[in-house]
């Protein structure tokens, strides 16, 4: 019962957070010093399209429409929320007219998800492994060296690392492709290998940084946990190092990581956006960038809203998982 109440409580908070996020998204275009419609018109005409007054007027009206600038503020707000929450419809893309924005997003999402998920997973597993081992003997030379390397890697932003990697491996030594070009028939081996080949550098830039983080934090946790009384007791029971590590220290080290992950998802997402742009990787980040460059407002609003909602959802899900895994909260 306690658990149920907790879950319902979290879900309510989640709904409120989403509404809050959408409210922010609604007000951002209205906060600025410039009128987004005029800015967009200026952008379109600066790109060399010649329009007479009537055309400009028509465009202005249709833009006001897509911006949701018709009616009173309250009406606009309601229309905005309704459109996103209930229909999930962001209209057609202006730059790739008439493809619906949602379709573009659905095409891009698997790339972003795949990139983030595989790379964080790899980094997480490796980082835990190395962190656990070096935390077990925190003062051994190899542990100190590992931590030193991790400390030098973790603070670097993804996109900087992405830049460094692309400078090194695409310009200086031409090993990996500069930009992403995927080819091959669906489900063919060529396609798979081309995806792996092209995703390698963007993924590495995420893996390396995230790996650094896990090494640092897991090492600190492990070296603290192994001095805990329950770990000492396990040793007095004559259990071997391997068993103490896997059954006593690892579970206790893994739990707090979940909360941490919830806090980091936003930052990780931020980083991956820029990485995608730098590598021309066909994910959400590149789509956002295209939208910005092309002044495609529908696409922009759609991609940004979706990113915000996705990150908030991921955070909330992780937040919900935590108490299910921790018996101290599960059975109270």
């Amino acid at each position: 019962m306690h658990l149920l109440r907790f879950i319902v409580g979290r879900l309510v908070v989640y709904a409120l957070v989403i509404v809050f996020a959408l409210t922010v998204l609604f007000f951002v275009p209205r906060l600025g010093p410039t009128d987004p419609v005029e800015a967009m018109l200026a952008k379109v005409s600066s790109q060399g399209a010649y329009m007479d007054a009537a055309q400009v007027d028509a465009l202005r009206r249709s833009l006001a429409d897509t911006f949701g600038l018709n009616g009173s503020l309250l009406e606009q707000y309601w229309a905005f929320i309704k459109r996103i929450v209930f229909t999930g419809d962001f209209g057609p893309s202006l730059s790739m007219y008439p493809t619906p924005v949602m379709e573009l997003i659905w095409n891009a999402l698997p790339w972003t998800f795949g990139l983030l998920l595989t790379s964080t997973l790899i980094a997480w597993v490796l980082g835990n492994f190395v962190g656990l081992l070096s935390g077990w003997r925190p003062n051994a030379n190899s542990s100190r060296i590992m931590e030193g390397i991790a400390i030098c890697l973790y603070p670097i932003p993804y996109y900087i690392l992405a830049l460094v990697l692309s400078i090194l491996f695409s310009y200086v030594w031409r090993i990996f492709p500069l930009t992403t070009t995927i080819r091959g028939a669906p489900w063919s081996w060529e396609l798979v290998s081309s995806i792996v080949w092209n995703s390698f550098l963007p993924a590495m830039s995420i893996v390396i940084v995230v790996f650094g983080w896990w090494v640092i934090s897991v090492k600190a946790q492990t070296s603290a946990l192994k001095e805990e009384e329950f770990a000492r007791y396990a040793r007095l029971k004559g259990l071997g190092d391997g068993r103490i590590l896997t059954r006593y220290i690892l579970p206790n080290a893994l739990l707090p990581q979940i909360t941490f992950l919830a806090l980091q998802i936003g930052l990780m997402f931020n980083g991956s956006l820029i990485t995608e742009i730098l590598f021309d990787y066909p994910g959400l980040g590149l789509l956002i960038y295209t939208a910005v460059l092309q002044g495609d407002f529908n696409l922009l609003m759609g991609t940004i809203s979706l990113s915000v909602i996705a990150v908030a959802t991921a955070t909330m899900i992780i937040d919900l998982i935590y108490p299910l895994l921790d018996p101290r909260i599960r059975h109270r």
Binding site: E229, F230, Y233, R247, Y248, L255, D326
Partner: peptide
């Protein structure tokens, strides 16, 4: 008090 593994 803390001799037993809290997760076992």
């Amino acid at each position: 008090m803390s001799v037993l593994n809290p997760l076992m």
